[in-house]
Design a protein around this nucleic acid. Structure first.
Lengths: 264, 264
DNA sequence: CTAATAGTGTCTGTGAGACAATATATC
DNA sequence: GATATATTGTCTCACAGACACTATTAG
């Protein structure tokens, strides 16, 4: 049987139905704290709970690829428009497909990870009752994909586990890529960049060593020649301004100080 | 509307059908060359072409998770049995969902990456006309997800791109994890371990420096006290035997010598 | 015997991290 | 003026890579 003959006799509905969804872990930094974009579900199941923005991948006549679906969901369900999206880094995180993760039917979700500079408060989209940048520490994540008892905003489905994976990926990506600059405005100071690392990693870094290290990595940042119009928050000289360089990977890498625990 | 009421009225077949498949990039080392497990397709579409082993995820009554589906496909379509599987490392690679990647219907495939020690020749499973460990260099990969013109074994669908991604992931994983030992027998010598790195990375390493480096990373290997019963291939003293240690991550990492090209 | 290899020792350059010093902001 | 901060300098230790050396095995 040739391909044409086979395809004519092929019935896609002969199998048990499966849906493919997209969920986006969109991270940004606001007021010196790491925030994740959440929407409050306006429809069942789990109506009223907070969840990662997402939805089903379009198939059939208006079929779209996974990357396109993720960009669309991020824009659509939050009011972040396409022109702001090109300053957002978007990459695939992982696929989640436990049989009982969604009560409606078998849903396999492809999660994406987004790094965004500071953005306006989102407005809720179609199926969402609300949308908000939410401080990650307020979610009480345990590090094992669950939330501590008593946390106010319980996440829907397995979204706590997806978010945990996204955070770990983000922490790791800052080590060996130049993506920390995507959390910053187009022009930024080294102390601002250091604040990004400190916020995502959750540890304080040595200001002097960090400064020298960033400037020593080729292509990480390039000088604008200009100087910030204000000094540090609580005093100090004005810092020089930089923009992102052309390096995608940091070499040598900027490693987290303490990860002894994770080795074994 | 509550969850129960909503679910009773929910019709999964209202959407355009999508299938979720698994594809496995299974790598091993044979005769000093990197090999990937391929099956020759015994059914349309692309009947007769070589492809990554895989199949559709089971849904409905005998639903399985993604990891379980990958392990089942690897065992089923190749005759690698469950007892041999526990010496295989299996991890998720990425999801591929371009709308036209499969002519039958919309198929989103979740690819897995497997590292296996030397194994017997596979036997073809249900839908496969043949199965074989295939030398990766013989596939003429370009590094951009395509194959050089004139290559004998053209891979089906987008499997050349998936394989390219899997190889890059494998190269990268050897740098900062202890997974190189999963390519080896339970007891191995440092020169054998070095051969794994040289084969996957495609570059020769300095024997003396590699030896000292491996022993200096805590938990990478542990001595068995025994000694190999033969010397090197073309002479030299017998090497000492080691087994895999308890470290999952290498600290400090074992970096590839030359990756200047990939930075920008 | 000859050639290749396992394993160790040594040296040098780079870079990370601790600490210090100075100038310049904020409050 | 008191204090915090940006930036640069210095020192030390760890480590990667180059090279050298010895003992041991295959052919």
């Amino acid at each position: 049987m040739g391909d044409e003959e086979f395809l004519a006799s092929y019935d896609p509905r002969a199998y048990d139905p499966v849906a493919v969804a997209i969920d986006v872990v969109a991270l940004t930094i606001r007021d010196g704290a790491l925030h994740v974009l959440l929407v409050r579900r306006g429809v069942p199941p789990q109506e009223g709970r907070w969840a990662l923005p997402g939805g089903f991948v379009r198939s059939g006549a208006h079929a779209e690829g996974l990357d396109a679906a993720a960009a669309r969901e991020l824009a659509e369900e939050t009011g972040v428009h396409a022109d702001a999206l090109d300053r957002v880094h978007l990459e695939q995180l992982a696929a989640y497909g436990a049989p009982e993760r969604d009560p409606r039917m078998r849903v396999v979700s492809v999660a994406y990870l987004a790094f965004a500079p500071e953005m306006p408060e989102p407005r809720a989209g179609s199926d969402a009752a609300d949308a908000a940048w939410t401080p990650v520490p307020s979610l009480g994540l345990t590090g094992h994909g669950s939330q501590r008892p008593g946390t106010t905003r319980r996440l829907a489905f397995d979204h706590a586990a997806i978010l945990t994976d996204g955070l770990e990926r983000a922490r790791s990506k800052l080590e060996y890529t130049a993506l920390a600059t995507t959390f910053c405005a187009p022009e930024f100071t080294i102390p601002e960049l250091r604040a990004v690392y400190e916020t995502v990693w959750g540890e304080e870094l040595h200001a002097g060593n960090f400064h020298r290290k960033v400037l020593s990595v080729p292509g990480f940042v390039e000088s604008t020649g200009a100087t910030s119009d204000r000094g540090g928050r609580r005093g100090g000289p004005r810092a020089r301004l930089y923009r992102a360089g052309d390096a995608r990977l940091l070499h040598p890498a900027l490693l987290r100080p303490s990860r002894e625990e994770e080795i074994r």
